[in-house]
């Protein structure tokens, strides 16, 4: 799977409270979550973001609460993929489980600026910055996780392999 999109860049420790504030969690509807995605860190993100865009974050992206509403909000907002230096562990597994593509690639993060266009090859784990022309190799997922991703998330995976 190959993706190409414009970059929204954030710093370290972007937590799930700023990705989707708790005050919206009386709902899990895609429209509500998408409308308030990133609201407390980037107030007009929902208006600026376009389908296929890419979020680039620093260390410990998605830290804090286990709310799956956070990767869901990002996905529903139309974001194609998140590239970060590292992810908080619950956000990491939630993203894989719901089929939101994520990549850990510190070198690519460092060399990326807001507004750049990235081309991401999810299967190969290659991130290319079209402004600089440089490519970076992200860490590959272990085979077990690749299988979940390939099946389209954990629920589809379980349906395939059986309970």
């Amino acid at each position: 799977m190959k993706l190409k999109g414009k970059v929204f860049k954030y710093g370290d420790n972007v937590d799930t409270d700023v990705i989707i504030p708790a005050r919206y969690l009386t709902s899990s509807s895609p429209e509500v979550l998408a409308a308030h995605c990133m609201e407390d860190i980037d107030a007009d993100f929902a208006e600026k973001v376009e389908a296929g865009d890419i979020i680039v974050g620093g260390k410990n992206f998605g830290s804090g609460s286990s709310r799956e509403h956070a990767p869901l909000a990002i996905k529903y907002a139309g974001v194609a993929c998140v590239v970060a230096e590292s992810f908080a562990r619950i956000f990491y597994r939630n993203s894989i489980n719901i089929g939101l593509p994520i990549l850990e690639c510190p070198e690519a993060v460092e060399a990326t600026e807001a507004g750049d266009t990235l081309e991401v090859d999810i299967d190969q784990g290659i991130v290319k910055n079209l402004r600089t022309g440089e490519s970076y190799q992200a860490e590959a997922f272990p085979p077990f996780m690749q299988e979940i991703i390939k099946d389209g998330g954990l629920i589809e995976h379980i349906k395939k392999v059986g309970v």
């Binding site: 286990s66 379980i158 309970v163």
Partner: peptide, 20 residues
């Protein structure tokens, strides 16, 4: 350990969860 809603759903159905 904390997990997300999909993990919870899977664990309610199977009694299992994946761990590294």
């Amino acid at each position: 350990t904390g997990v997300g809603s999909t993990d919870m759903a899977a664990a309610m159905a199977t009694g299992k969860a994946w761990f590294k």
